[in-house]
Design a protein around this nucleic acid. Structure first.
Lengths: 191, 191
DNA sequence: TGTACATCAGTGAACGCGCGTTCACTGATGTAC
DNA sequence: TGTACATCAGTGAACGCGCGTTCACTGATGTAC
């Protein structure tokens, strides 16, 4: 798994072959078959681990942030995760495609916390969303998730550099975009 | 190019090989080399055509919609394009990755219209954004684009079916999510 | 304490496959004089 | 009108490559009696 993650971030998602992972792990091409049924199972495992990493990052971001800024903190943590592990991020969504479960719907390793999607929803409630208006609450959660996902993919493009410079850095840029989505309270955060 | 688009939507982006395209076109594997330098050039051409298609869809959406609903109409058109040509949509962004130009920054076939990104920005102005507050305007445009892109990728997941049902269809669902992004005026649209 | 067996993570060689790309060549079409 | 040449889109065979997967196998470790 470690080798897989190394290959992934070093060479990109298209280079993530069973053979490459075995090579990186210093092992014969047949060895992985003692641990995974086939390539798809390895990919799923890598993706799953990725979701757990993301969730952990979100939990930490929430913990070290002022209560009023929780939602933005989650958004920033999300985008920063995608920035730090771009290839893993792609594999996570690729593996989720065609699956029945929501990708962010990973069962949690730490049982005291819900999954990533629920974290966002709960934080919406913290911020004053009405928990009894279920549809409204879900839509707001979906909208926030979409916004973060969209920004995560766009933030990588080079063209926004001048906006980042103008605003005084990437963090400020992310915060400003979130603010313009009208979903998140405003203020800069650690990343 | 037609063969490429057929392969793409029939078999997905990973099946888009030079050989597959040649096969689909009923031609030898070497034939495409008379039209494209290599595989990358073919991919770029396909992606470029995709951006032009998207832009056309957005122009049409704007044309047949009430002025007050232009921005939402663009968003809906964008998401519907991604739904109708999911593989092409992926190739478009994949080709743009690592490029210097903004992906939505396609030079226009109809010179009376700007590019897709400018369409969104101009529509923001139509809706009352202050054109002299440049940074603000750009941020709003980026935020809108991110929101649409995020929704375009999420809308494909099966889990939102119950929300769609509850709201009375996909169009209503998309409209509702856009509304929750706080960027778009509200009301349902043709797709 | 020793023997027999099961489990486990590995080897290395081989399979068939589809891929991108190159090569020398062909036949049809257009153009110059 | 006829001849010579250039251009163009194609052929088909071959190249080397990395891939996923299978196979019979080995050696170390653990366990039962």
């Amino acid at each position: 798994m470690e080798a897989a993650r190394r290959v992934l971030e070093a060479e990109g998602p298209s280079a993530l072959s069973l053979r490459a992972v075995a090579r990186e792990a210093g092992v014969s091409p047949a060895a992985p078959y003692h641990h995974f049924k086939d390539k798809a199972e390895l990919l799923d495992a890598v993706a799953h681990e990725g979701w757990e990493m993301l969730q952990l990052a979100m939990i930490e971001a929430k913990a070290r942030t002022d209560r009023s800024q929780h939602l933005t903190a989650l958004g920033i943590a999300y985008v920063c995760f995608a920035r730090d592990y771009p290839a893993l991020y792609r594999v996570m969504y690729d593996a989720a495609r065609d699956k029945e479960a929501l990708p962010m719907d990973v069962e949690d390793a730490n049982p005291e916390n819900g999954n990533a999607y629920c974290m966002v929803r709960d934080t919406m409630i913290e911020h004053g969303a009405d928990p009894s208006a279920e549809t409204h609450l879900e839509l707001a959660t979906v909208a926030a998730w979409c916004g973060a996902h969209g920004l995560a993919e766009m933030a990588g493009f080079k063209q926004f550099q001048h906006l980042k410079d103008e605003l005084g850095g990437e963090r400020a840029f992310l915060d400003a975009v979130f603010r313009h989505m009208g979903l998140f309270p405003t203020q800069a955060h650690d990343c």
